[in-house]
Simulated assay, not measured.
Amino acid sequence: MSIQLRRATRRFRHRPIFTDLDLDVPQGARLLLAGDNGSGKTTLLRCLAGTLALTAGRISVAGEPVGSPAARRLVGLCLAPEQGLYGRLSARDNLRLVARLRLPRRSVEPATARVIEELGIGTYADRPAEKCSAGMRARVSIARALLGDPVVLLLDEPTRSLDEPTRAMLWAALDRRRHLTCVIASHHREDRARCDSTLTLPVGR
């Protein structure tokens, strides 16, 4: 299993976000997280990434405890895709920065060039991120998550700021990585149709 949850529970103070969640996501699967705003989709993604600890239970990624250095190397994460870039750095340098952390030095430039081409970033790759539109920044954030050939990709509303041609670029990039396990929180109908299964999180579970 690429992702395994056992009795995973997360509370904020006394408010339950999700409780005793058991889940198995096989390699190459695409899981849609559905639910109303406030149901815990982003919280669950953060727990899967290891950036937020569970209150109880456990999560593993490819057999590694979530949050461990080994698990972090296997996960590509894109939360709030229009945000989170270094504004004064160019789109290309934002990508290089992550590539240097995740890849051998000789692979940095080829890997950066590949995701720039895949997501159609070339026309503004050398523009400061703070000068890019929300849709442009979203492309860079998604490209950044793909660097290093992760085993698991976690996406939070990735297509919210993307037009139809760019959404097609994203899904083409994912289709080229059939081994990649994707967990996607989205309200977009096309994203839902592209997923194999759905986990609906009720508010206050």
Rank of each mutant, 00 (worst) to 15 (best):
S161Q: 10
E109G: 10
R127F: 11
V98Q: 10
A138C: 12
P158D: 04
L85M: 12
V108L: 10
L155W: 07
E109D: 10
L95R: 00
T166Q: 13
R137M: 07
S133F: 06
L153C: 04
N94Y: 01
D93K: 11
S107W: 08
R144T: 09
E118D: 13
K131C: 13
L146C: 13
I121Y: 03
E109F: 03
Q83I: 01
T159Y: 01
L154T: 04
E82D: 14
S90P: 09
A113H: 10
G84H: 02
I121V: 12
R167L: 11
I121C: 11
R96I: 00
L170I: 05
G87K: 09
I121G: 03
L147M: 03
A91Y: 00
I142R: 01
T159R: 01
L119G: 02
S90A: 00
K131N: 14
R106H: 13
R88S: 15
P81W: 02
L162T: 14
D163M: 07
A138F: 01
P128I: 04
L154D: 12
L85K: 10
T166H: 13
A143Q: 06
P150G: 08
P150D: 09
A138V: 02
R105W: 02
T112D: 05
R102E: 01
M136I: 04
M169K: 12
R102W: 02
I142H: 01
R100N: 11
A143N: 08
E117P: 06
R144P: 13
R137E: 07
V115G: 05
E117H: 08
S133R: 04
E164G: 02
R106Q: 13
S133H: 00
Y86N: 03
I142C: 04
R139V: 00
E117N: 10
D93L: 14
T166D: 12
R106G: 13
G87H: 13
L147V: 07
S141R: 08
R127M: 14
K131G: 12
V108T: 15
R114K: 12
M169T: 13
V115F: 03
L154Q: 07
R102N: 08
G120N: 01
L97C: 14
I142S: 00
A111H: 03
T112L: 03
T123M: 14
P150V: 12
G84V: 11
M169C: 15
S107H: 13
V108P: 12
E117Y: 02
V151H: 15
E164A: 14
D126P: 03
A111M: 05
S133D: 08
E118S: 11
M169H: 13
P110I: 06
R100P: 07
R96C: 05
L155F: 05
P128F: 06
S90E: 01
L147C: 09
R144A: 05
